[in-house]
């Protein structure tokens, strides 16, 4: 699903403006200094708006890297 990948890249670029295009696919909670709890809330808000999904609080701990979020969105959007 290349479209999903591109759209998620755009979301990351908006929330983490310091990340370069090559860095975004490797971004994770531990590798990006500005990825703190406030950034997580902003990122989740953007994802919910952009992809029309609702992320339950219990799922937050799973969403700690670009790859994991991409997998999560694939599962959510294919389930829908």
């Amino acid at each position: 699903m290349p479209d999903l990948h591109c759209r998620l890249m755009e979301c990351f670029a908006a929330v983490f403006p310091g990340l370069g295009e090559a860095e975004i696919p490797r971004a994770s909670f531990t590798s990006v200094a500005k990825w703190d709890s406030l950034a997580t809330i902003t990122l989740i808000g953007v994802l919910e708006e952009e992809f029309g999904v609702s992320v339950p609080p219990d799922d937050l701990e799973l969403l700690v890297s670009f790859e994991l979020i991409l997998d999560y969105l694939r599962s959510k959007t294919s389930a829908a």
Partner: peptide
């Protein structure tokens, strides 16, 4: 305005 648009405006 959507949240992602707001963030983009602030990056300009």
């Amino acid at each position: 305005m959507k949240l992602i648009e707001a963030l983009k405006i602030l990056r300009e």
